[in-house]
Design a protein around this nucleic acid. Sequence first.
DNA 1: TTGCAAACTTACTAATTAGTAAGTAGGTTT
DNA 2: AAACCTACTTACTAATTAGTAAGTTTGCAA
Lengths: 188, 188
Amino acid sequence: MKRPDTRQQILDLAENLIRSKGYNSFSYHEISHTLGVKNAAVHYHFPTKEVLGLEVIRSAIQRFKDFKEETASLSLEEQLDAFIQTYSINSENDKVCLVGAISVEFYGLPENMTNVMKGLTRLIHDWATNLLAIGKAEGMFTFDMKPETKATMIITNLAAGVQIARLMGNETFSDLIKGIKIDLGVNQ
Amino acid sequence: MKRPDTRQQILDLAENLIRSKGYNSFSYHEISHTLGVKNAAVHYHFPTKEVLGLEVIRSAIQRFKDFKEETASLSLEEQLDAFIQTYSINSENDKVCLVGAISVEFYGLPENMTNVMKGLTRLIHDWATNLLAIGKAEGMFTFDMKPETKATMIITNLAAGVQIARLMGNETFSDLIKGIKIDLGVNQ
DNA sequence: TTGCAAACTTACTAATTAGTAAGTAGGTTT
DNA sequence: AAACCTACTTACTAATTAGTAAGTTTGCAA
């Protein structure tokens, strides 16, 4: 018999549930039922829901670090496009990003989770700031503010863009991307 | 004895809880305990949690309509500032906006709630679009895209701005406001 | 072949959840 | 003053929740 890799399946499903409905809107029962295992099997891999939530965020941190490495050799515009594309995929799959999901439920989550999440948010923001700073210095992007401010603007556009797409439709999101590029001066 | 206006207190508290932790992170017990009444008193005013959630959204729709009327006679820039200020107050009170709160939990909420929420989102977006269209025509705002696109950009900046402020601090939000104004050409 | 550990299941528990039925106190209407 | 209504309380229930303790199976190593 094949190794079903239950642990990874639980982790993936938990992330999808957090980004579909929020952390406090899914139960261990929903996970075990969906994967065809028993409730205790989920607790075997992740003793508490807080541990599961933490692991979801930690794996997202690792995934972003991998993304950084994998795209490091690309041009700035290709890096930005790759970043935006991850949100386009979210929008098509009706999934919000972790930053949005965790921040909205902030005061209903274990402090450990929100603290680890702060690290991921800084990581993404620092990366975007650096990208924009270099791009501005090289004359590739045009904006009249600090690169950290522009980074906040683009990240908030994307984070709430996938949220508002649930209420207004996916065209709203693709339209938004065009706007971001126009303001950066990278439209052609 | 004074009229305690329990119904209004429940409604206000419910909105605050939704915008602090999310709809599925608070209970009728939390409401009744906080207000010093019994669980059944909450059910007397709002028979089901879905009804309570719907009333929260409906009262927000009414509030936005009142906002529109009250600010209609102001200049475009004053109207925009008034709109932005409601988000600044949110940020200071660590509250996200309803659009963000409802959209993140979207697939964990009763369909009635998300449908009514779509109405509020359209209402806000249409208002902002109209404001930006007139402001652009009058040469007050400068942007090189459709006014509906710029409306989406500003609304997503504000919605996710208050979210990301929870993870990165309130300076991130006030910084973001400056960025929005710079891109609109209404800085200083 | 025996021993052992990883990955479960079986069978629970205690707490919390939304929701209800029946009663009651106090003011208003008739 | 009798009837009635509003705004509750008392006292529940059934379902769901996260979490646990004690087995069981299966593959692998000694």
